[in-house]
Structure formats: structure tokens, C-alpha cells
């Protein structure tokens, strides 16, 4: 995984609660057996006026001009500003893959669905929880100012507005570390292979039925 670097990024506001993973990346794209190439289908049903299918060339598809990502002022945005319960629904990691492939590095919302939140960290994407009042304010400021950018510093755990206001955010230390260093989590876990094997041996004696061999 790529390590997460601090960014100063353009912010795009997506003003609706409960944005689910079906909306982030519709199911027809889940038929892919690859991890890449999902960015052009991000929010497919909202972004385009026609129906998207896997492997479609998106360059000539009719765009929904109303949809915020299609507005020229938000081109190149790296920070997605969202509402409550972002990423609810299915466990598909295709959702963070699509966001990341599109170019997002940070998502800010008052709350995230658990599985989605967790999946972000595995893909170099930083989900930031800020309280509802702060998020309201960021929505207003973004909408008012065409070149609105936020500074995100993971090391310091702060979001800074162009006016210099800081907001602190929480992140679990183990997740922060993994993101900052771009760690191979499986490799790290396998450093404890002996402990896993010892646990397994003990359980095999205590509850042998857990290890039914078919």
C-alpha cells in the first residue's frame, strides 16, 4: 500500500446523507476480477445519464451536469466532503478502490459506516470524522469559495481551513501507523505466526470441534 502523505486539496461537497456503496460503485462493476480501473465508474448512476456497464469507454458518455462531481470547479478534487453514514451498505472494497482511483485521498463526514471506514485504511484513503456543526460549516465555506482547499495533516491529526482554523480529528493509533507507513499488514501479522500457532494448538485441545477436517 502507498503511504499516506499530507495534502492540501480541493474539496467537493456531496450533500446527501446515507450515501451507500451501491451508489459509490454500482454492482455491475463488481464483476471485475481486478482491483484497478474503477475510478471512471465512481457514482456511475449519478454521474452519467446513460446506464454504465463494465469495460465501457466513459469519455463519450452523457454527463449529468447537475451532479456535483461534474462541475468544472471541482475538477481535480482530492477531498470529499460528505454527510452522515457515508459508505453504508455492502462490504465491497470496490467503493474505496473507486474513490481512490478517481483521485480522492480524504473523505470528511460526521459519521461513516463501519466496514467502509475500515476498508478505506487498507487503501491509502483517510476517512475523517468531524462533528456535524463543523461539517455544516465546511459545506457552507466550500460552496461559497471556488478555490476552497483544506490542509490535512495525518501526523498531527488536524484539518486546517484557508482562514487558518484548525479542527482536530481522532484516528486509531494502529490505523494511523499503517496508513503513514503504507505497511503490509499481512506481513506484519505473520511476524506473530508462532503466537497464532500456539493459540490454535490450545484451542484444538479445548474445543476440537472447531477444527473439523472435511
Amino acid at each position: 500500500m502507498q503511504p499516506f502523505k499530507n495534502i492540501n486539496g480541493l474539496v467537493v461537497p456531496l450533500d446527501r446523507p446515507n450515501v451507500d456503496t451501491d451508489a459509490i460503485i454500482p454492482k455491475q462493476f463488481l464483476k471485475s476480477i481486478k482491483r484497478t480501473g474503477f475510478g471512471k465508474y465512481l457514482f456511475d448512476e449519478w454521474r452519467y445519464l446513460d446506464h454504465g456497464e463494465p469495460d465501457m469507454d466513459c469519455s463519450n458518455r452523457p454527463l449529468n451536469k447537475e451532479f456535483v462531481l461534474n462541475q468544472p470547479r471541482y475538477e481535480g478534487a482530492e477531498i470529499l466532503l460528505a454527510r452522515d453514514n457515508f459508505g453504508c451498505g455492502s462490504s465491497r472494497e470496490h467503493a474505496p478502490w473507486a474513490l481512490q482511483d478517481y483521485g480522492f485521498r480524504v473523505i470528511i463526514a460526521p459519521s461513516f459506516a463501519d466496514i467502509f471506514y475500515n476498508n478505506c485504511f487498507k487503501n491509502g484513503l483517510l476517512p475523517i470524522v468531524l462533528d456535524g456543526v463543523t461539517v455544516d460549516r465546511l459545506f457552507e465555506e466550500t460552496q461559497a469559495d471556488k478555490s476552497y482547499r483544506l490542509d490535512v495533516d495525518l501526523e498531527q491529526q488536524t484539518v486546517t481551513t484557508p482562514a487558518g482554523d484548525h479542527f482536530d480529528f481522532d484516528v486509531d493509533p494502529f490505523r494511523k501507523q499503517a496508513l503513514l507507513q503504507g505497511l503490509d499488514e499481512i506481513g506484519l501479522t505473520l511476524q506473530h505466526a508462532d503466537e497464532i500457532a500456539a493459540y490454535e494448538e490450545r484451542r484444538r485441545k479445548e474445543q476440537p470441534w472447531l477444527f473439523f477436517e472435511n
Binding site: 462490504s91 465491497r92 472494497e93 475500515n118 487498507k122
Partner: peptide, 15 residues
């Protein structure tokens, strides 16, 4: 439920 990275993690490490 888990994401695909965790599917790989569970397969490889049983944890």
C-alpha cells in the same frame, strides 16, 4: 463482514 483486503488477511493468517 469484511473487505477484500481482510479476506486476503484472513486467508493468509487465520486472524
Amino acid at each position: 463482514g469484511i473487505g477484500t483486503s481482510e479476506v486476503e488477511h484472513a486467508l493468509a493468517t487465520q486472524t
